[in-house]
Design a protein around this nucleic acid. Structure first.
Lengths: 219, 219, 219, 219
DNA sequence: TCGTAAACGAGACGGTACGTCGCGTCTTTAT
DNA sequence: ATAAAGACGCGACGTACCGTCTCGTTTACGA
């Protein structure tokens, strides 16, 4: 089940890019490529990570990479997604893999989630590849959209869900659009982290939640 | 006069990087390099813009580029800054080149500024180089900080100023930190534009201002 | 019958290279490979003829080629030999397929044979593969010996035979070694053709025969 | 003088192939490439000699080879020609570098020259590159003609000269065409060596001269 | 006013990586 | 068991740029 669903998910449907026969694909090579890509990005950085280097480290021919991916960014994106899937599988098979806790106190819940997000953003395993992918996405719109759809939006959707619950509980005004609302606290954090515009601390994220919930104008 | 002042301003002080005699520098070449860099980024995109290409297009030896800059990102950053300066000079010699209008209505003023920002973000002359520089900055921290300091912060400071004025006028709570507050509406816009996470419209930016000022929680 | 004899003849005995069961070999594939190899050498030249290309054109798996031959030169050599056999079979079933005519006039007979040889050398069907095989043979001694033994020597032997007959008829000195003698007119032609050292004409080959028979020194 | 003439000779005139500025060419790299090419052909054989290998062994970028030559065959041809020139220069600056001796006895002189030729053909330094170039020339007509014009014909011309002297001395019939006549003894030797059609010995080349001078027919 | 030292254009050079092609091996599915 | 199909590890191809390094040639300064 889980296995089947996974292989169905992570194997590219033939429609996406014209692939050779995916059923004969070497899973050993694929995993080795993922590992090598993530390791190299972590060790030498994205710009110095080369397809040739990935192939060499994975013990794989270059053509095996070019056969299944169209750029090193695509490789890294899939490797990173795979990493996430494996992390999920490793920590148990809960039905709802990720969700924002709902203690009834929207402010507290959001602050907790943002603090966890900060931790993740500065986790070395996570930081190098996600910065690299984000950077590539800025300039390569196709990849950018893939990055957003596969990595960013699923996580943002959790915020939407929690905000809707808060609306139902009367803690957020009903006319508020949750998809926009979440950006009030998520985007500032994202920008500080991505662009180093200013330091990030728990105090900062807590403040963001407060400002967003209660606004800037006198009440 | 203008020429002299300009060259004094935008030439790096000798301390920053060990330069040859800057007084003998060819302004013709410098300008040709700026023009070529901006043109190429616009025409073929940042990744396909090469130093060799810039040199060829500018009719300049490669060494002339390597003598004065350390990477194509540095070239583009200076070229882009220079473009801004020239735009400023072209539109007149006002003392305070940029400032957010203060009509007394903070909401209206912010909405107007954000709408203007949207227009600028999607101006083709502006978009390609600034995306490219932003992308490079994500992965290259040194350049990222330069990008933020020279391009982003000056513009954010204007928001800080306007918010302080609003605080003085009692339209924004006094305990609010303006440097954080501005991110409530600026960062969401920046993220949507940079990462294509969602479309950007005047309605959207107006909404951002409203949410930010009055918060999400019932009043 | 014919088929069986043929396959027995042109299939390598198991001792030469360790073959799989030759009795189960697909004659369809074999012929398709021969046709493809000859066609490709004629169309794109020997260096651009590849095993992959032959397999694709023959509608055959690469392994089917590697199973039965050890190099593209071997394939071509066999294909070329097969072509010769088919030509022989096509033009009738005489017992002695080739022999130099013996009209009693050794000079006339040799001139006639050399003219026929010239025609064959510049026959497009013949030229491309035999040049290619000769070239490969220069550098690959094993193949060179095979080429000589299977293609060149049988034809030279006919000259030996005819020269011996001329010796019996008193038209050639008895102490002459026919195997060396034939080279006086065959090798110059071969070299002009192979190495483009000079043009080849009937007048030229006639002259060769005259010079060879009567020598350079005054009589 | 000698130096000037040499550099004028071995630098390609701009007409031959569209070269970059030949005056700025690195003679160090050129010589290193020649040395590497000849060494590799001798050590691993022509087919396993690669441009990449030559570049690596010469301590040179691949582009430096591609800038000045169009194929490994061209490199080897020039290297081989250069080797010859250096050999000539090394053994003294005689005006007439090569000529067939003229003792008055044409048979003896030709036998001596052919014996020397045999020695040269089986000299390891000479054999590998010249076989390789000959082989390439069979299949690549352009290179073949270059090979013939630059290496073969000059040497054949010496035979023409000696035969003309013999004609003047009445040792060769006046109506004989020396350019054809020389092939009677040169081509058979060439073919035996190139194609391994039969072994080569001094006795064999002596016989060739005798047969060629006095013919096959009874006198 | 004229050297003269710099910056300059041009581009050759040693390299690295690119993306492609073909090799020879191996595995899978079908006949 | 042979065959078609083709994925795989591998190595070389020929190209594009990198950043460094000469080369003359301007060019602007200070003697």
């Amino acid at each position: 089940m889980a296995t089947i669903r996974k292989s169905a998910r992570s194997t590219h449907p033939a429609a996406e890019r014209p692939h050779p026969d995916a059923t004969r694909r070497s899973q050993r090579s694929r995993q080795a490529i993922y590992d090598a890509a993530l390791a190299l990005v972590g060790e030498v950085g994205y710009p110095k990570t080369t397809i040739e280097g990935i192939a060499a480290r994975a013990g794989v021919g270059k053509q095996t990479i070019y056969r299944w991916w169209s750029s090193k960014a695509e490789v890294l994106l899939e490797a990173f997604l795979d990493l996430g899937e494996q992390a999920v599988q490793a920590q148990g098979q809960q039905e709802e893999p990720y969700a924002i806790p709902d203690t009834g106190d929207i402010a507290a819940d959001l602050k907790a989630v943002l603090r966890a997000t900060v931790d993740q953003l500065y986790d070395p395993k996570f930081e190098a590849p996600s910065r690299a992918l984000a950077a590539e996405g800025l300039v390569n719109e196709q990849l950018g959209r893939e990055f957003v759809a596969k990595l960013l939006e699923p996580s943002l959707q959790l915020h939407v869900d929690r905000l809707r619950a808060a609306q139902a509980a009367g803690q957020v005004r009903p006319e508020i659009d949750p998809r926009i609302a979440l950006e009030l606290f998520v985007s500032p954090l994202a920008q500080r982290w991505l662009q180093h515009t200013a330091p990030v601390s728990y105090a900062y994220t807590d403040t963001l939640v407060d400002y967003a919930l209660y606004g800037l104008a006198p009440r």
